[in-house]
Simulated assay, not measured.
Amino acid sequence: MKNRLLRFYLYFILYLSPALAFAQADVPAGARAAALGNASVTLPDLWSLHNNVAGIANLQQAHFGAYVENRFSMRELTTVALLAAIPTAKYGSYGLSFSRFGDELYSQQHAGLGVAHKLGQFSLGAKLDIWQIAAEGYGSQKAMALSVGGQAEIIPDLYFGAYAYNLNQAKLAAFEDERLPTIMKAGLSYRPYHKLLLVAETEKNIDYNATFKAGIEYQLLQNKFILRTGFQSLTNRATFGAGFIARHLLVDYAFGSTTLLGTSHHLSVSYLFSRRQAS
């Protein structure tokens, strides 16, 4: 009975608060990003397909990955995502992403297509996401979100990234002018030496206060084992994590905690295929 009441309260909050109900539409993907406080706008990896699509322009290998996130040990707050990116020698990089959040009472599903191209020290990308939001007893709604991003190496080992999610302010329903969140973020990353990475960024949902995010990544054991930590100012959230690289397999785990809501767990596994041949 207690669990049913808790579920009822949770969904009551979700239905009445767009900030909670649709913030999930732009949750950064990958346990690496999660461990760094989601300060991921400058990172050029597979998960940038979700975090800043410009980052896939820097991939040298075809890459496939899966990501699972659970918030506060509740099955209803679980996200599962699949991503794949393929770089080409002349025509940039292309990626597909799929995700699902929620359960039979409330769920969000998405499919996205992204493309990015590298021009010298600059990388530019764009992505189209199709979202379906469904709530039991209320039906479902679909919306398309257009996002663009860029990354650049300012000076050696100092990088800048910027990303605008849902530029078109996609509408879900006429009631209360319900829309997917529109989010802008920009940040810097710096590698003082090859084992250490520092990242920081500011993110602004146009309807809410800005948040500052930062993280540190340090490589150990001949760059095969990686430790990470980070934080977010708006949610007072501290995060920790680790990564392991075994040839073409990458495994990352992250653990996050807030003072009020509890803990979250993040796991991502990805595989790099053979390096492409130069034309």
Rank of each mutant, 00 (worst) to 15 (best):
Y208T: 07
F231A: 15
K204N: 04
V199Y: 03
L220D: 00
L227P: 00
N205V: 03
K224D: 09
T202Y: 08
H194A: 13
F231Y: 08
T202V: 12
N223K: 09
I226H: 03
N209P: 02
L220H: 00
N209F: 08
Q219G: 10
L196P: 12
N209A: 15
K195W: 10
Y208I: 11
P192A: 09
L227N: 09
N209Q: 11
K213H: 15
Y190I: 06
L220W: 00
T229K: 02
L197I: 11
F212Q: 08
V199N: 07
E217S: 08
E217G: 06
L197E: 08
H194P: 14
N209M: 11
G230D: 03
S189Y: 04
E217F: 01
L227T: 03
R228T: 02
L227S: 04
S189C: 07
H194N: 14
G215A: 08
P192V: 07
Y208D: 06
T211I: 05
L221C: 05
I226Y: 03
L196C: 14
K195P: 10
R228H: 06
Q219E: 10
P192H: 13
L227F: 07
Y208R: 07
H194L: 13
F231P: 01
S189W: 08
N209C: 05
E203L: 01
K204P: 01
Y193W: 14
H194F: 14
G230A: 12
F225T: 03
P192K: 13
L196F: 12
N205H: 10
Y190M: 15
I206D: 05
N205P: 04
I216K: 02
E217K: 01
F225P: 02
F212C: 04
F212Y: 10
R228Q: 09
L227G: 06
N223Y: 03
L198S: 15
V199G: 11
Q232G: 10
L227Y: 01
I226A: 04
A200Y: 12
R228N: 03
Q232H: 02
I206A: 07
L196N: 12
S189N: 15
Q222I: 00
F212G: 03
G215H: 06
Y208L: 09
Q222L: 03
N205Y: 02
H194Y: 12
I226L: 09
L196V: 15
Q219H: 07
E203R: 02
F231N: 05
N205T: 06
N223M: 04
T202F: 06
T211M: 10
Q219R: 09
A210M: 02
N205D: 14
E203T: 04
V199Q: 10
K195C: 12
V199K: 09
T202K: 01
A200V: 13
Q222F: 00
V199C: 12
Y208F: 10
Y218N: 03
L221I: 04
L197C: 11
A200Q: 12
E203I: 04
E217M: 04
A200L: 09
R191V: 08
Y218R: 07
H194R: 14
T202L: 10
S189R: 10
